[in-house]
């Protein structure tokens, strides 16, 4: 019985792992296929996954198009994503600290109001937000991408989850030792919450790396455009350049996957230990 259960557990784990990986693997391999090979294999065989004829042509096409300097778009996107991530780490963790650890009148109400911001779909407030950003004179500037994104209720909610595990006694001990609240936040809470912060930071970074509709609307100058907007131009009315799209998607995904693989040991693995000990 025990052994069957064990076997079943492994089968499930491996099956889910395959489902998680296959689409990504297929994308990366597809990027190395010549055009005519892309939709050729339809039965389960080796070449469904592995290209017959390996080619770099899709990548060459991608990077040799001088009207779409992909490197530049990646730089722009990195600049925006990193700025947003840094700001959001600061502002969101501050708010989360107050909501989870500090006592103040109206805390419940304020938190509820914050949460309500999660409910409204961003597509609806896009036009009023555009008008606002326009009034600030931020159209066509990275400010329009960075500043409104610096605070995220989702991130605050996420961090509150983890901050709640820090025992208040620990904070009060710090207080009695003469530390100020900012000091406690900086010296006690943040250091013990590194995995949670990395989780939040990664999600924020990804959100910016994926951003499409908002940058499309507020950035006019092509030299300031973001990566996903550039990728979208490979789909047009006349034809969709699938090879190029898979290559572009690969280029957009692989650096993030590598960043994630590097970071995961700091949080996917160690988030485990962040539990109670604080």
């Amino acid at each position: 019985m025990e052994r069957i259960g064990h076997l079943l557990k492994w089968i499930v784990m491996i099956a889910v792992a395959l489902i998680s990986l296959l689409p990504i693997f297929w994308m990366v391999m597809g990027a190395f296929r010549p055009r005519q090979e892309l939709f050729q294999y339809v039965s389960l065989e080796w070449h469904l996954f592995i290209p017959v004829e390996w080619t770099l042509q899709n990548f060459i096409d991608l990077f040799s198009d001088s009207s779409k300097p992909l490197g530049r778009f990646i730089n722009n996107t990195l600049l925006v994503a990193v700025s947003v991530t840094l700001l959001s780490l600061l502002f969101n963790s501050m708010a989360a600290f107050a909501f989870s650890k500090l006592r103040f009148r109206g805390r419940g109400v304020v938190f509820a109001v914050f949460l309500s911001a999660l409910v409204i779909p961003g597509e609806v407030t896009m036009v009023p937000t555009y008008l606002l950003v326009h009034a600030f004179g931020w159209i066509d500037s990275f400010r329009a991408l960075i500043v409104p994104a610096a605070v995220s209720v989702f991130s605050i909610f996420l961090l509150v989850q983890f901050f709640a595990d820090v025992p208040r006694e620990l904070l009060e001990a710090g207080k009695i030792d003469g530390a100020s609240w900012p000091g406690i936040y900086a010296k006690i809470v943040l250091p013990s919450m590194v995995p949670a912060l990395i989780t939040m930071g990664l999600i924020t970074f990804l959100g910016q790396w994926d951003a499409y509709l908002w940058p499309l609307i507020v950035i006019n100058d092509e030299s300031k455009q973001m990566l996903q907007v550039a990728i979208a131009t490979f789909t047009n009315l006349q034809a969709t350049e699938w090879g190029k799209i898979l290559a572009a998607d690969t280029v957009a995904s692989v650096p993030i996957l590598i960043l994630f693989l590097f970071l995961q040991k700091y949080y996917v693995q160690s988030i485990v230990n962040s539990g109670i000990k604080g």
Partner: peptide, 16 residues
Amino acid sequence: LSACSTKGSGGENAGA
């Protein structure tokens, strides 16, 4: 940061 980024790309008058 955002000021720099505007400047960085040439400061065209269609900017901010």
